[in-house]
Each structure stands twice: as C-alpha cells, then as structure tokens.
Write a protein that binds this DNA or RNA. Sequence first.
DNA 1: GCGCGCTTTGACACCGGTGTCAATCGGTGT
DNA 2: ACACCGATTGACACCGGTGTCAAAGCGCGC
Lengths: 349, 349
Amino acid sequence: MPPGALQTTRKPTINDVASHAGVSKKTVSRVINGSPGLSAATQEKVEQAIVALGYVPNPQARALALGRNFAIVLLHDNPNAQTVQNFERGVLDAIRESELALMVRPVDRRSPAMLDDIAAFLQQQRPIGAIILPPISERDEIGELCRSMGVRFVRVGSAALDDDDHSVTSTDRIAVTEACRLLIATGHRRIGFVRGPQGFRSAAERELGFHAALEAAGLPVPPDYCAQGDYRFESGRSAGRLLLGLDPRPTAIFASNDEMAAGVMHAAFERNLQIPRDLSLVGFDDSPTATHVWPSLTTVRWPIRDMGVLAAEKLVGNFLPKRRFSSDFVHLPSELIERASIAPPPSET
Amino acid sequence: MPPGALQTTRKPTINDVASHAGVSKKTVSRVINGSPGLSAATQEKVEQAIVALGYVPNPQARALALGRNFAIVLLHDNPNAQTVQNFERGVLDAIRESELALMVRPVDRRSPAMLDDIAAFLQQQRPIGAIILPPISERDEIGELCRSMGVRFVRVGSAALDDDDHSVTSTDRIAVTEACRLLIATGHRRIGFVRGPQGFRSAAERELGFHAALEAAGLPVPPDYCAQGDYRFESGRSAGRLLLGLDPRPTAIFASNDEMAAGVMHAAFERNLQIPRDLSLVGFDDSPTATHVWPSLTTVRWPIRDMGVLAAEKLVGNFLPKRRFSSDFVHLPSELIERASIAPPPSET
DNA sequence: GCGCGCTTTGACACCGGTGTCAATCGGTGT
DNA sequence: ACACCGATTGACACCGGTGTCAAAGCGCGC
C-alpha cells in the first residue's frame, strides 16, 4: 500500500497523522494536547501533518479514553424560553471554535426525582462541566452532586451566591433600585410591588432593591402595596387587581418580571385605567413582551447573553482559544431600558 | 482478588456483567442490543446480572465502537425562542427513558458557512439523526448533507414538504383559512394580510390559506391589502402603518405571526384606532405575546410540542421504549384560539 | 456411532484516542 | 572514554463497547 493513498474517503485518524509525520501516535497525542516536553522540530513536523491531512481528533474516542466527554451541560428549569435561549447563545458564542459541545438539559424542579435525574445524566454523559441556571442554581445539592461526580460547575444567579468561585451574577438589585428611583424622580410617592415567588433568590433580591430605593427616599411601604406573584402572567394580573383595588391605589407599580407586568397591565385596562397616564409601570427582563405590549414597557435588561459567555469562560476557559472577558470575576450590570410606560402621577383629586 | 468485591465504587462495565453472569462480554452485548439467536436461559441469566449490578452501558464506548453517537441533534435557526423550546420539550418527552441524548444546534442561516458548519458538526458528533426546524428545513441541501453522512433526518415544516418520508408537518393553511372564515363570518369584507418573509414556505402556505378563504367567500383581495413582513415586530408595525393608511382601510387584518400582529396593534394605537372596535386582528403561533397584549390576540396554535414528539418518534422510533403516536404519518392539526381581538366591523359611515 | 447443518456462544481484533513506563538520545562531569 | 542525567520519544496496555468468524453444542438421519 503506497503511503498517502486512499486517505480521501475515510476521516484521518491519529494513526494516519503519526505515520505521515513519522512519529508515534502518542507523540501526536502530545501535540494535540499541548503536553510539555516536545522538541520544536517534532512539534512542527506533527503540526504540518495535521494540517496536511485535515485531521480532527475524534471526540468519542477521547471521551472513552479520558472517561470524560468534551462537552458542557446547561441545566435549567426556566419558565422563560427567551432567557434560556439567550443564555445558550452566549455559551455557544464562547465555545465556538473550541472542541467543546453544548448539551441542554431541561429538568423539572417540582419533580422529586430531579436530583436523581441529573445524577443519572451526569453519570451517563460525563461532561466536563455544568452550568446551572436560576432558579435551580439556588439549590446547593446540585453543586454538591457535580462536585461528587467530578463535574466542574458554575451557578448563575441574580445575586451573589455564597460561593464566588462557582457563580456568575448580575446586579439585579442595583438595577431595580435605579428603576424605582426613576419612578420617584418622576414624582411617584405611592409605589406598589409585585414580588416573584417565594424561595427564589432573584425575587428576594429584586424586593431588596425596591425597598432600598423607597427607604432612601423616605417613602413608606405599606405591607399591602407588596403583592405576591409567581413570575407568571396570571399571577401578575391577580396582583394587579389587588393593588389597583386599594384606596388610595398606587400610582406606579414595579413588577418583578415583564410577564407579571403584562398581567398588571391587563388588570389596569380592566378598570379602564390608562398607562402611563393613570398608572406607571416597570418590568424586569426586557423580554419580547416588553416591546410588544402597548404602551411598551420600561424594564430592566438582564445581560443574559454576556452572562452565558462569562459562565462558559469561567467554567472551561482553559479549553477556549480566545476569551472575551479577561477576568473570571466580573459583575455584569443590568441596565434600565426606558420605554413608554412611565409618566408623572395623576394630580390628586 | 475475590470475585464480586470492590464493585462498589467503580461503575460496572460490560466485563463485570459478563463475569458475574458467567458468559462472554459479547453475549452481554447481544442481550443489551436485543440481538437474535440467544437461548432464553442465557438471556435470563444476563438480565439478572445486569439488574444485580445496576449496569448501564457506557455511551462513549458505544459511540466509538459504532462510529455513531446515541444522540439526535436539533438544527434550528429560529427567531422564536418559545417555539424552539416547546419543540425541544416534545422531543425530550419522546426520548425520555431511552438511551438517546439530545443536542441542540442553533445555526445562522444568513451565514454562508452554515452548511460547512453543520457538516463539521455532524462529522464531529456523528449523531444517529437530526431534526431540522423551519425555516432552514426548507433548504434541501441540509437533507442531502445528512444523507451523505449517513445521518437520518426529519424535516419539520408548516406545509407538506416534498419528501414525505422525512417530514413532519402541520396544517397551517387550513387553520389560516378557518381563521379568515371566522373574520368573514363576523362581518368583515375588507381584510388585510401581513405576509411572512419571501422564501419561507410557511409564509407562502399561510398566504394560500388567506386567499383560499377570501376567494371562497367571493371577496376581492386588492394587491395593496397584502403587505410584506419578515416575521419580526418592526415589520409588523410598518405593514400595519401601510395598511391602516389605505382608503378605505381594512377592517380586519391577519398577520402571519403574533409578533407582527403586535406590530400591527402598535400601528393601530398610533392612529388612535381601538381593537377590536375599529380593527379586528388575528395572529399566528399562540406565542406568549398573544396572551400578554391587550386585548389578547386571537391566534392559531401550532401543535409544536406534539410535532416534537412525532418528529422524534419518526426519526428514532425503533429506539424508543414506548410511543405516543401509532403511525409515522400524522398530520397534526393547528388550532384556532379565540381571544379578544375580533369584533364585527364598524358600521360604514 | 458418525457426519451434517443449524443454533448458540466465545476469542480476538478493532474503534481512536490516552496513561505508564521504559528506551533512547545528546550533553556533562571526571 | 565512561557513567550519569534530564529531555524526548515510543511500545504497549487500556478505556468499554461491537463486528467477525470460528468453535462448540445439539438434534437428526443414516
């Protein structure tokens, strides 16, 4: 068999490269992995062979040999598809041109089998690392699980999670404070709040931001001005009905996400209130809904895509050819997006 | 080394099962794969060993031996996150409890490198099959690519794609006709249409449905009553401004998706038109936006999650323990969701 | 009892990488 | 010239499965 023949149809393997370069496969392996202790000449020779043959290592073989898949998993149970997908894009941006793959794993946080499910998945797929999105990122057991299985992980959260090493966060609280400060500056004194569900750190953080702004301005926060929601549209509508039924009713409402803000809008329109004339409104997320509703919604944009990039770089930065963030420890700012849902309060009758 | 010891920490492999059952690893392999020609006794023995040891085959090893990953890919370039995610859920529902994994691969249809990108991915990951979502499902080259790489594929479309073997479709056209018939039945005679982008089969299908309804009712369709959009909000707003600037203007508009319908709403509100009093409106997709806007939008629900299930079953039904659809050839019906955006037309002045 | 063909099973190589450890190489110190 | 040493490199086993093909087991007709 003449050397260099028949390479056309089959994908070249490490053996092809080895014989083409006149070295052993182990040496090729060393070049691929950038192992130390190679002479410049050999390195060069092998690299040329790799280019000449268009060799790409076989991920499956590697996974078997290493007992580790060159992939990262995105674990989430997120009600907001847009958020997940934006994050996913960020992660993909980061790992583009690396040899890493992304697997997405939606889970059900209400299922008692969730942890087993995740464990089985990690056991099966043996990824290098996992990225955990909120709200399940708040469950410490998942981090434990990853640790015990030797899977690196990063938790994404709206607030500083306890473990800085493993977390990527944005500055929700500050952004909420800023948004409420805008309401106050516009003249509002009676500001209502629709809270996210119990047990969600993001919900707590946003509430803290709300209180911080009102306290700083010396405004009272009557308990019944804080309504409980669950981040879904319906709960926003109920909360809105409640808040707008109060006397005196709030002249502005901050809803902890856009979906609930849309619910509040419905509640207002049901009572023939106009926005922003009779009621100012702020949401959170900058979801498509925020631009689609009329009037379009002033909201807080969560830098979710950048967080995806950052999380990936934090998790597997050593495998990435180029990085966008120089440091692993970045707090990404949430940003207030001003649209049409805020106006000065109606003058008192 | 005493047999049966130390199994506790390491995951059992096929060798462990083999020695535990007193057979060769090949025989165990046969049991796992349900290969024919095994005596009932051996089968039984091996199965017991598998259960006893809690053995699960290692997917990486399998992938290497077979040159095929036990995974399916979802290829998409879809502007609508909700749609993709719903579909994804359907696929995951279907492959739950199978040994298959799902990989999601967003691509960029505007990039000239898209095909190379997909080819490289398939080459690398070697999945069993691929599911291709619209709009890229309409590009025949992708199917060709899959075929040439020995990857099974299913194309998802809003209309019958040419190749029934490889496609899962819903009945958009009929649903649109039905929606328009409702408008007509409500009394509308001047109905405008906002089209999806050129080159999208779904856009063409929806337009056909629209024309079918109007022709059946003997209504004229002036060319300027059909505005061009691109499935995005902004284009819907522009189209709305155009249509509502006509004299006489349409009393009802069908927008080819919800996002554009939201844009039309903005155009209407800009002109101080009320919906549905002055203008009736129908969208398509039943996206979250459709419920969030006020008034909530009458729309067509695309059975996307079920299509995910069906696509997966069609693609890899032989690997699935149980199936939800008995046949591979099902046309899933789109469904008209009636909400608050339709009313009789204003009486002529 | 023997040869035959069919069913059932196993030995062994192989998929394409990586880890271990020993062999080889060139240069030093004496 | 020789023993010695660190830097390079390679031979070989191994990761955990599957394919190939031959061997063993078995029932049957003669």
